[in-house]
Amino acid sequence: MEPILTIQGLKKQYSAGTWGLNGIDLTVQPGEFIAVIGPSGAGKSTLLRCMNRLIEPTEGRITFLGEDVVCANKRELRSIRARMGMIFQHYNLVYRSSVLENVLHGRLGYMGSLAGMLGRYPEADKEEAIALLEKVGLENEVYKRADELSGGQKQRVGVCRALAQKPSLILADEPIASLDPKSSKTVMDAIHTNCREQGIACLVNLHQVDYAKAYATRIVGIKAGRVVFDGPSDQLTSDITQYLYEGKEDEMFHKAAI
């Protein structure tokens, strides 16, 4: 099968000569659910943000659905981003807008600039957005303002926004790092179920190894900007996790306990 995303020799140099990413190679097949694990500062966030160029990579090639991401011009990049959903640690919603509007923001990438600015979303998009919200259990919050929701609910809105894009790939950057264990499970379930049902490939940055093992079909371990493990989740032995988190062992589980 044709991979939907290939990354070759991806490097990111921050100013002052520090390398955030130090030559990453990664291939994502359609429908895969991949957890990216590693200690904080390993470059997980940078990796995800390079894929849709929220951060400009310094070197390397990224190919998404046969299109070159790094060399894409403004219009091409917009179309690439529209087909890549993203979920953020801090939800990144527009809190003074309604839940429904926040989900509909996922459609902006497909709309004309002016129609999007005026918020002329097609009726079908609105119905689908509401259906998505119903599916994650937010049917009673559709018209509420986003700042009225709890953390777990906000993140489910974030998930719906990404799903509204009808993406081929979802990038989730620490989606549960700010949530309690119960909300974490609801959010991870929402991401996992929807991705599996709709055949969306997913890359999830996770702090917690136990969550990674529970949900992912494949795990990628990153340390100091390099891939040090890439394989099915049952092959991730405790030796490898220990090596991965060497010196930062306390990070493996502490977030889940908050």
């Binding site: 993203m86 990144n92 807008s97 999007g116 600015m117 974030g158 926004r161």
Partner: peptide, 27 residues
């Protein structure tokens, strides 16, 4: 700036980002 980043990741144009992320917060 978080919501600006989110809309950028959705492929929203400059005008759309201003209208949907900046204006509501700025009102």
């Amino acid at each position: 700036q978080d919501s600006m980043e989110a809309l950028e990741s959705c492929g929203a144009t400059y005008g759309q980002r201003i209208k949907h992320a900046i204006i509501p917060q700025f009102l």
